[in-house]
Design a protein around this nucleic acid. Structure first.
Lengths: 146, 146
DNA sequence: TATTGTTATACTCTATAACTATA
DNA sequence: TATAGTTATAGAGTATAACAATA
């Protein structure tokens, strides 16, 4: 062990992973925020703009704009909130659901393919580390939330 | 083991990691592409716009524009290429070097801090998986390059 | 003619400030 | 007055097409 910190060791690997995943996102697929919103709407039903903004840590105007773009692409639809005249409920459309399914399948397939190219020992090491990586990412989210 | 593919298992974890690292980047820090360019220039000296574009998989006009923004922020400087009248050499400034050092230190510190909050077993699992994750990311890059 | 770099243009994504409508 | 949402505006980041200068 050198004097190098753990963070320094982790940094280049994570940077490369991020660059790779960013490419995976590509210009045709929905952005990570758009995908997170569509998943949320698909899995838990309609939501307010403010709630979507909070969930994704976006600003309220930013979410208004994203919802606007997604509405233009027919991925979501705005309906008035019956319980609050100021509010708007954002609903996923059938096309929006299809995009979620298609996108996640595409990512999973790509990752599977890459996984298959690795040595079995590497595959095992990554699978072993998945829960730990998840907790690392969660700790990172909490950091900001606090 | 369920019938779920490895890619599907990996997906949510990587997605969360990416979201966390994107927040880490923040609006004040240089973008990942800008940081990659500044590192390249710091470590290996001046480079052509075309080479920087190829290295980061950006378009040539995109790199011209990024260099323009970085020049406006005094992070780099353009000098004519003495060996080719068409070319331009991009050089990092002292301020650019300082930004690289400061940014990497910030990332490393943040990751160290998060690492310290993990259980030792989790830390070990991640360290064990680092070379495998690096190869996974490299495989992903190659995929695109081919 | 091919290469290097830029300009023109357009779109996504994001933010802050100012505004409107409802509570 | 506080909250929900939008509009106005600005800037980063990215791309393609058209162009200028040099090789």
């Amino acid at each position: 062990m050198s004097g190098e910190s753990r963070g320094s060791q982790l940094l280049p690997v994570l940077a490369q992973l991020v660059r790779f995943l960013r490419q995976l996102e590509g210009p045709d697929n929905p952005s990570s925020v758009a995908l997170a919103v569509l998943r949320r709407l698909s899995e838990e039903g309609p939501a307010r703009v403010t709630d979507l903004a909070r969930m994704t840590r976006a600003s309220q105007p930013g979410m208004t704009q994203l919802v606007g773009r997604m509405e233009k692409s027919a991925l979501v639809r705005r309906v008035p909130d019956p319980t609050d005249g100021r509010g708007v409920l954002v609903e996923v459309t059938e096309e929006g659901r299809a995009v979620v399914i298609r996108t996640l399948a595409h990512y999973a397939t790509t990752l599977d393919h890459l996984f298959d190219e690795l040595e079995p020992a590497d595959r095992d090491a990554i699978v072993q580390a998945l829960p730990a990586l998840e907790r690392l990412a969660q700790a990172g989210q909490k950091e900001r939330a606090g």
